[in-house]
Amino acid sequence: MSQTLALPRALELPGGGRLPRLGAVDAVALEGRAADLAKRSIKRESKLFALELAIRMIDLTTLEGADTPGKVRALSVKAIRPDPGDAAVPPVAAVCVYPTLVGVARRTVAGSGVKVASVATAFPSGQSAREVKLADVRSAVEAGADEVDMVIDRGAFLSGRIAQVYDEIVAVKEACGDAHLKVILETGELGTYDAVRRASLVAIAGGADFIKTSTGKVSPAATLPVTLCMLEVIRDVHDETGLVVGMKPAGGIRTAKQAIQYLCLLHETLGVDWLTPDRFRLGASSLLNDLLLQLRKQRTGIYRSPDEFTVD
């Protein structure tokens, strides 16, 4: 294959093999395809399946300056048992919090199978010294984070210092130890789908287990086209090397309908193998209650009052 290097120097992927060609993305066609897939009409049992799957894929998130141990505890309890009225509703994939609250979350979800994810590397801007970012990561991991959501240095990326971005991801990956690494591209700041594609490849080359669209602090956050663009990179990497990389759209996904659109996009781009929380997450907070509401509706035929579901 014609190989245009995504990076300033030849890089081996962690699992061996070469990067797929950098390639290009046509914005009009990409957005057209995403819009087409958003029109899939998911009904009855296929909808039940999607709602349940979406719940299992949620990284239930709170990332506020006002976060407290109490808030995180409540969220973590909800993560384990999202619907107090229905034990059949599965737990979510993870809770996602700031490093200082990892300990609280860790203790609350212990033994439940729910993971603890922590943002790190001077989230959300990433504008700190390398040592500060790495210390941030280490503190999260030491507090018990299973997963680390780092942000890339957009300042470096946009000014063409791609190697710096790459080196930092490699360093963070190392600091993560056994913790899984999700690399946030903050696509809303990258400007073009071509840049998103390039950043995705850099992140994967650096050792990302997941690539993630957004911090949720910048608008636009996750969109269907940008997610499709990243899923196509993941597909190319898998084709070329067999490497499996996960995807996490985050920010702005608030309704069950949106969640199902993301799942259709995923299903028809990467196939059923990716329909698992091991390979796909939805970064969200208010989404969960809409999924619960719709799930109840799908099972009983009745829309319940939103007050029947907990607000945490």
């Binding site: 699992g15 009904k43 050792g207 499996v244 329909l275 091991d278 390979r279």
Partner: peptide, 23 residues
């Protein structure tokens, strides 16, 4: 790149997702 080897959530991917008819 651990995701290849070990399922972390203990839940395997489904074998198929059939869309119900939507006439």
């Amino acid at each position: 790149m651990g995701a290849v080897e070990k399922p972390r959530t203990g839940v395997a991917a489904p074998s198929a997702w059939e869309y119900a008819s939507a006439p």
